[in-house]
């Protein structure tokens, strides 16, 4: 039986600005999966561990964060802070005996580019393989 994962993406405003332009039409044309729900945040450094865990509580099968490159963050250290929090969620999932691969961090440059779609497809395939969330 096929399984369509519920995937939540938290993306930095700057990284996703052009991708989300024109109501995301270009993103759809590039093959961005429909089951990935995008939430844009002013800076991924603003994301809390609790926000990512809440996504799992709300039924997400996988959660990932897309922020600026580590050496080119608009807010200097925002995406590095996000990466630390994603790592904390991974540890927490491991403690709960849940696959830590359900959460991931990507550092991508600004602009509409295939990597943004590739990251979504990678997460989609990964979660399809792992299966539904145990929560």
């Amino acid at each position: 039986m096929s399984f369509i994962p519920d995937i939540r993406l938290f993306s930095c405003h700057y990284t996703s600005q052009q991708s989300c332009a024109h109501e995301g039409k270009e993103l759809q044309e590039l093959g961005f999966p429909e089951n990935v729900r995008l939430t844009r945040v002013p800076c991924t450094g603003k994301l809390e561990v609790a926000t990512l865990l809440k996504a799992f509580e709300d039924g997400a099968d996988g959660v990932y964060v897309v922020g600026c490159p580590t050496d080119g963050c608009h807010n200097v250290e925002g995406s590095q802070r996000a990466a630390k929090r994603v790592a904390a969620v991974r540890d927490a999932l491991q403690e709960l005996d849940v696959e830590p691969e359900r959460v991931n961090m990507y550092h991508l440059p600004r602009g509409l580019h295939p990597q943004f779609v590739d990251a979504a497809n990678e997460m989609n395939q990964r979660i399809e393989k792992i299966g539904p969330s145990p929560f």
């Binding site: 809390e48 865990l53 809440k54 927490a92 709960l96 849940v98």
Partner: peptide
């Protein structure tokens, strides 16, 4: 408060699991 919020979430997830 921040850590309590995280722990609350983890307890909910753990109980559910």
């Amino acid at each position: 408060e921040r850590e309590a919020e995280i722990l609350g979430s983890l307890i909910r997830l753990g109980m559910k699991k």
